[in-house]
Amino acid sequence: MTDVTETPAPTRLRRILDSDLFYAFRTSPVALISALVTMFLILSAVFAPLIATTNPFDPASLNLMNGFTPPMEPNAFTGENFLLGTDDQGRDVFSTILYGMRISLFVGVTAVVFAMVLGIVLGLLAGYFGGWTDTIIMRAADVQLTFPSILVAMLIFGIAKGITPIEYRDQMAIWVLILAIGLSDWVQFARVVRGATMVEKGKDYVAAAHLIGRPSFAIMIRHILPNVLSPVLVIATISLALAIIAEATLSFLGIGAPPTQPSLGTLIRIGQQFLFSGEWWILFFPACTLLALALSVNLLGDWLRDALNPRLK
């Protein structure tokens, strides 16, 4: 039958605003609040140099006399006021948190992107070709899952530390951290993509593409990949929260971000030394920031999973 009305194709933005997903977002308070908090934290990390009162990593701006200033109180010697206090070296905690969050987010996002790309590629191959390809990739994934991911990350970190020359170690630390977290995280992407690929592979549009004569590579990228991406998006969001926590854990253990480039985890490690001597703010504020960041991203991921799953509606 012919459509009587010929409505012009709506623009991309109109489509998004009209979509059920956006409607579900608009009407969910949890989604709105967590998205707002996430956006706020990400923006303040990105614009840290503009917001922060001092650059905590510029030694010239540090004054040891400012050390251990409590929040919202003038320093006993210099009379300077710090919103969230200062640490042992006189660094402004507020500024270190902003800069620390940059490192945490950078490591988290890059590690998840790395894990995602690796997982998608291996998952597509395993699901599409099946047989031995599938067996090898998925058994490797199974073996990897038998080790706790922190342990895998520590192993990779240890090896990398052993083979990099000492003068590059601090520069390399961040990248090794990304590699370590990314490598311990690809398995769940691969599993989900493999499963979804096996379902999509059986559908007739893939058969139609075969009939056209499209090569396997084109079918995987052009046809199957776009159809397996929505579960990947959900895992990526939840993984981001986990990666940020994993990075903080490793840094807390002292094998992550170096003190010259402290992430939230490094700040917490530094802070916990002073917890019992009464300087609670050095630990408390970075920990709260980590909590807010991980929680809001996680809630967003949870909401996304429910919103994209038609069976839960």
Partner: peptide, 11 residues
């Protein structure tokens, strides 16, 4: 080829 299920035969 034209397939049976019009919902799965188009990407």
């Amino acid at each position: 080829m034209i397939f049976q299920d019009p919902f799965s035969s188009l990407n």
